[in-house]
């Protein structure tokens, strides 16, 4: 049985939309609305292009629409559609004005770091900055372990309120914070980042974020005020150690 073109069009678009929505509904990992919007825009255009590539299929695709206005026998349906359409448009417009938009601010969570950062009276080049404790891992494992433990103490005296006991981003104040604190647990978090990136984020905090990442809303303190440089490195070492992650090597 051949499915008529207009129905094909609707089915294809709906199936793609369903596929894009599925990760969010089934796995709890939604594809962001902003991306879905862009994807759908181009999918609809692409499907339209395919279906209008030949005269026959164009004809078939728009036949019901054409019939609606031209075929006298469809007058009843036409009238119904012609009444429903303005009402729907009106309803949507009403919905928009009623809530006044109220669109939540968009925010990018993984901003590009600056080239250079100034803190502790020094300049740090983030593209070459490495954790000074990292070399101890091979050279002096016992000393490294001691540093990791000290980093743990720093973490549990300063960070765990928000980032959590389990380093999963669910501290006992996390539920009060928007945006939520970031987790360190899992292979897709700090394992994707170099230690210099963490150093930047910790030292400069939420207020040090670039504009696109919403510095006005992040509650991450700028730790250069309260932690020493070595404490920051220790806590970074701890974050990797506790979660079993490895930092991403430097380089572009």
């Amino acid at each position: 049985m051949k499915i008529p073109k207009p129905l094909q069009f609707i089915i294809v678009v709906l199936v793609v939309y369903g596929l894009l929505k599925a990760p969010g509904l089934l796995l709890g990992k939604p594809i962001p609305q902003s991306v879905i919007f862009m994807y759908m825009l181009f999918v609809v255009i692409a499907v339209l292009l395919v279906m209008t590539a030949t005269d026959e299929s164009t004809e078939e695709l728009f036949a019901p629409v054409r019939a609606l206005v031209e075929d006298p026998s469809k007058r009843l349906i036409r009238n119904v559609v012609f009444i429903i359409l303005p009402l729907t448009a009106g309803y949507i417009a009403y919905g928009f004005t009623k809530t006044g938009g109220g669109q939540a601010g968009l925010r990018s969570v993984h901003p590009a770091p600056p080239l250079e950062m100034r803190a502790y009276g020094k300049a740090f080049d983030l593209s070459t900055l490495v954790n000074p404790l990292r070399r101890l891992e091979k050279e002096d494992p016992a000393e490294f372990k001691r540093n990791v433990e000290e980093g743990g103490a720093v973490y549990f005296r300063n960070c765990f309120f928000c980032h959590g006991d389990k380093l999963d981003g669910i501290g006992h104040y996390a539920h009060a914070l928007t945006p939520p604190p970031l987790p360190f647990k899992g292979r897709d978090t700090i394992a994707q980042l170099s230690e210099s990136y963490l150093f930047w984020r910790i030292v400069k905090g939420g207020v040090g974020l670039p504009q696109e990442a919403g510095p006005a809303e992040s509650s991450m303190p700028a730790w250069e005020e309260d932690l020493r440089e070595d404490e920051v490195w220790k806590v970074i070492t701890f974050l990797y150690d506790y979660t079993g992650n490895r930092p991403r090597p430097l380089g572009r």
């Binding site: 939604p30 962001p32 601010g105 945006p179």
Partner: peptide, 18 residues
């Protein structure tokens, strides 16, 4: 760099989209 709504960021729980 994905642009996320707060609720989406909450659901993803991290900065990387799997």
């Amino acid at each position: 760099t994905l642009v996320l709504k707060p609720s989406e960021a909450q659901a993803l729980g991290g900065q990387y989209h799997p």
